[in-house]
Design a binder for these strands. Structure first.
Length: 426
RNA sequence: GGAGAGGUGGCAGAGUGGCCGAAUGCGCCGGCUUGCUAAGCCGGUGAGUCCUUUUUGGGCUCCGAGGGUUCGACUCCCUCCCUCUCCGCCA
């Protein structure tokens, strides 16, 4: 969330930012509640100061007088209680609204309403020209016996899949390759819970608002299945005051990711593009409150992902996500889209976000600067590799005319040195 | 799942109704002492929020979280979360 003081001082900037993101927010109401809350706070504090003082006096009074003084004091409690209740109600309403105020997008976030307005900022690699009729990943994988969508649907419903044989191994290879590269760069690998309390969802900005996209356990446990390791990893140090000398923290985590994909009926129904569960290697950076440093980290985590794609010889492009396609928490987001022949275009495979202190405020994630001052951290994250969509790209881009799959060199070590997966089927 | 113990500041640990935002020790910061280091001595050292303000300052809240009892709660009661020990069950 944003700092109330910042909103007070810059209501126009907040309003303009929300407009750029196409997110409705009732700032007038929020500022009015804020004013009321502060007025009540002054009153309540004064009343309580009085009461504290009286209570002290009673303690020091001769025993004979205590009963009388206490009875008097009891009368005054009602007023205090009433004001406190009002304050609590207003504060709760204020907090609810505040959680929904979007972060202010960066200057160079493009104007626009949806992903069609995202701005391409880079393109790498040439989409391959096939000298045969290429198959899409489903046809290719099914021909090899690698993919079983029908049985997965019977097991778990639509948008599920079973990987079998070499494709299952390839998934593991890509994940491990992505993880190892990040570890080599000094990122600390984490294995984290994917079932979290809702505080972590609120803290990272997914709730309120994203409840429909998350699987939730019943009331017995009240836990939520995360859609990304970003949630547990960014929340790892919630409530702590870190030491500046320990920053930045660079984490990488491989986890399962779960997404309900509510409201996407009929969209990307074929194959592995939009599924309920996949594996993902995610990178998270936590550092000091410094927009310049955040920007530098942002560049680095995008580059980290690009390197993975380039190493796998997959053509991609980077887009600067426009205001309307940006989530409430982000200052800026760069998506990386990888070439997918069956789509005849680029499909989103990575998403790199910069939040400034928006998540850190919600998580109460702070650090003590070398100057002794406590401030909220800045957080960032990006995909390194997401399994299902990476498999689409690998299958479709590296297929051979005979239906076998060429394995890019960096993955071979994870596949017992094999250069080819599958057997000729056509 | 059953029984018990416990959650206090960066850490350890006292505190069982007012004298406690919190002893003491360690750590950390500043200073003194000092050939250097160590030791020693002196002082300082939680977070949030509001009011006032050039500064200084003052109020309120926070001892796992939330609620309750009381004039007054770290201390008593209730619910929840977490940790530890024993038993059971399971991998």
């Amino acid at each position: 969330m944003l700092d109330l003081k910042f909103i007070r001082a810059n209501p126009d900037a907040v309003r303009a930012g929300a407009a750029k993101k196409r997110i409705a927010v009732d700032l007038a109401k929020l500022l009015d509640l804020d004013r009321q809350a502060r007025e009540l706070s002054v009153r309540v504090d004064a009343l309580r100061a009085q009461q504290n003082e009286s209570s002290q006096a009673i303690g020091k009074a001769p025993p004979a007088e205590r009963a009388r003084l206490a009875a008097e004091q009891k009368q005054k409690k009602a007023e205090l209680k009433e004001e406190e209740d009002r304050k609590a109600a207003i504060t709760a309403e204020l907090k609810e609204l505040l959680l929904r105020v979007p972060n202010v997008p960066a200057e160079d976030v493009p104007e626009g309403k949806d992903d069609s307005d995202n701005l391409e900022v880079k393109r790498w690699g040439e989409p391959r020209r096939f000298d045969f009729e290429p198959l899409d990943h489903v046809a290719l994988a099914e021909a090899q016996g690698w993919l079983d969508i029908d049985r997965a649907a019977r097991l778990s419903g639509s948008r599920n899949y079973v990987l079998r044989g070499d494709l299952s191994l390839l998934e593991g290879a890509v994940m491990r390759f992505a993880l190892d590269r990040m570890v080599a760069k000094g990122f600390v690998p984490l294995t984290v819970p994917t079932l979290v309390r809702s505080e972590a969802m609120v803290g990272t900005g997914y709730f309120p608002g994203g409840e429909e996209q998350a699987y939730r356990c019943d009331a017995r446990d009240d836990l939520v299945l995360v859609g990304t390791a970003e949630v547990p990893v960014t929340s790892l140090h919630a409530g702590e005051i870190l030491a500046e000398k320990d920053l930045p923290l660079r984490y990488v985590a491989l986890s399962a990711c779960y997404r309900r994909e509510a409201g996407t009926y009929g969209k990307d129904t074929r194959g592995l593009f939009r599924v309920h569960q996949f594996q993902k290697v995610e990178q998270v950076v936590i550092d000091v409150s410094d927009p310049g440093k955040s920007l530098a980290h942002h560049g680095e985590i995008v580059a980290n992902a690009e390197e993975v794609l380039a190493a796998l010889e997959l053509p991609y492009r980077v887009v600067n996500v426009c205001g309307g396609d940006l989530g409430a928490p982000q200052v800026q987001k760069f998506d990386i889209e990888t070439w997918m022949p069956s789509r005849g275009g680029y499909g989103e495979t990575h998403s790199a976000s910069r939040f400034h202190d928006y998540q850190a405020r919600r998580l109460n994630l702070r650090y003590r600067g070398t100057d002794g001052v406590v401030r909220f951290c800045h957080t960032l994250n990006n995909t390194v590799a997401a399994s299902a969509r990476m498999l689409i790209a690998l299958l479709e881009n590296h297929q051979r005319g005979d239906g076998t799959l060429w394995v890019p060199p960096p993955l071979r070590v994870y596949l017992c040195g094999r250069e080819t997966l599958g057997r000729p089927v056509r």
